[in-house]
């Protein structure tokens, strides 16, 4: 009996079963999955976080040295939900994280990005402004938040 396996590749899932599926996988590998454009660091559709990941060439695990792994986990889940357009769930996860770490500026950044994706520009600006009150002055985070306050 074939075992259900999930192969994750850049956020997309290609299910396959047994040998037959290996064949299909090869097809997908050389056509379907890889034919989707790979995100570029300067792609304006990407969030700040995703751009950083693209630039670094690998996932960035922790934005702040002291932050709890729980908040990281919630943020990661929020990014996954946002990637598939589940804005409400993504925002709910971020708010859960915010209730645990209310002064985490990067949560505000992620929320501002979410609001912007939803088309709420004014809301994104306000959230970013508040995030700036917690961000370290002159740091990368402050610069990222500043983008929402004074759009280029």
């Amino acid at each position: 009996m074939a075992t259900a396996v999930q192969l994750k590749y850049r956020g997309r899932v290609c299910p396959f079963y047994g040998r037959l599926v290996w064949v299909l996988l090869s097809v997908f590998w050389f056509s379907g999955c890889v034919s989707v454009p790979v995100d570029q660091p300067d792609d304006p559709r990407l969030s700040t976080w995703e751009r950083k990941e693209e630039r670094a060439g690998q996932p960035i695990e922790t934005p702040i040295a002291t932050r709890s792994s729980l908040v990281d986990s919630l943020q990661r889940s929020a990014r996954e939900r946002a990637a598939v357009g589940q804005w409400d769930q993504a925002e709910a996860l971020l708010l859960r994280a915010l209730r645990i770490e209310p002064q985490a500026a990067d949560l505000y950044l992620q929320m501002a990005e979410l609001k912007l994706r939803k088309g709420d520009t004014a809301g994104a600006t306000q959230i970013a402004r508040k995030g700036l009150t917690y961000a370290e002055t002159g740091g990368d985070l402050a610069a990222d938040l500043q983008r929402f306050v004074q759009p280029e």
Partner: peptide, 16 residues
């Protein structure tokens, strides 16, 4: 499903 949910609203009223 969800009819309405909490949405974090912030509005700057003063200089931080």
């Amino acid at each position: 499903g969800v009819l309405q949910r909490f949405d974090l609203q912030v509005e700057q009223r003063f200089a931080p």
